[in-house]
């Protein structure tokens, strides 16, 4: 563990809590892509299958449980409890166009072909693109609630910090995992224009609106 990875995990936790609180407090999931949340739940489910038979540390197990529980709780709030506020007209990204390539790619490029490893590789590739339905929805509505933009910023910052963690580990432990690094860079790049808008608008107190 290093400070960059710890900060990254904290950003990740903050993002998930902010989203849950936003939906719970406003009793609305307007502007939130349920499809992205489905993909995130799938990412954690496929990545943390080893939760039940591989103990790494208390921190590791606790965080995995929190990520799994909160992602399914978010799905419940979106698709059951506050279903009436789900904006399905704007949440139209075809997630099969993400799922199928990730399955194919995880069969082509993976560290090895054990079931757990294949699921892990699939979850890494899927996480890289899981935010696309959400970014697509924001581009369609042309705006996002400020709290939603904080959620997206924290979520983008988490993987950006993981990249710093991988650079740090490369130089201190000569450890590098090409699959995670390449997917993590792609994932962070997808947030690039969002980061720009967030920093130039939201941090200046303006609403998060895409240039018309």
């Amino acid at each position: 563990m290093n400070i960059f990875r710890l900060l990254g995990d904290i950003c990740h936790l903050v993002a998930i809590i902010v989203l849950l609180l936003k939906i719970w407090k406003t009793r609305s999931c307007a502007g939130i892509s349920g499809k992205s949340q489905i993909l995130f739940a799938l990412v954690y489910t496929t990545r943390y299958v080893d939760l039940f038979f591989t103990y790494v540390s208390l921190y590791n197990s606790v965080m995995k449980v929190i990520f799994l529980a909160s992602s399914y709780a978010t799905l419940y709030l979106i698709y059951v409890k506050f279903k009436a506020t789900y904006d399905f007209n704007h949440d139209t990204f075809r997630i099969e166009f993400l799922l199928i390539p990730c399955v194919i790619l995880s069969l082509l490029i993976t560290h090895d072909y054990s079931p757990v490893e294949l699921l892990w590789t699939f979850s890494i590739y899927l996480e890289a693109v899981a935010i696309l339905p959400q970014l697509f929805m924001v581009s369609k509505t042309g705006e996002a609630e400020t709290i939603t933009s904080h959620y997206l910023f924290a979520l983008g910052a988490y993987r950006a910090l993981y990249i710093v963690n991988w650079i740090y580990r490369y130089y201190t432990e000569s450890f590098i995992d090409g699959i995670a690094v390449v997917a993590g860079i792609i994932q962070t790049i997808l947030y690039a224009d969002f980061f720009y808008l967030y920093i130039t608008k939201v941090l200046k107190g303006k609403d998060f609106k895409l240039p018309a």
């Binding site: 990740h12 790494v56 540390s57 590791n60 965080m63 560290h111 090895d112 892990w120 590098i176 995992d177």
Partner: peptide, 10 residues
């Protein structure tokens, strides 16, 4: 070494 990913990363 590169050949395995680190299981302790979330």
């Amino acid at each position: 070494h590169d050949h395995d990913h680190d299981h302790d990363e979330l």
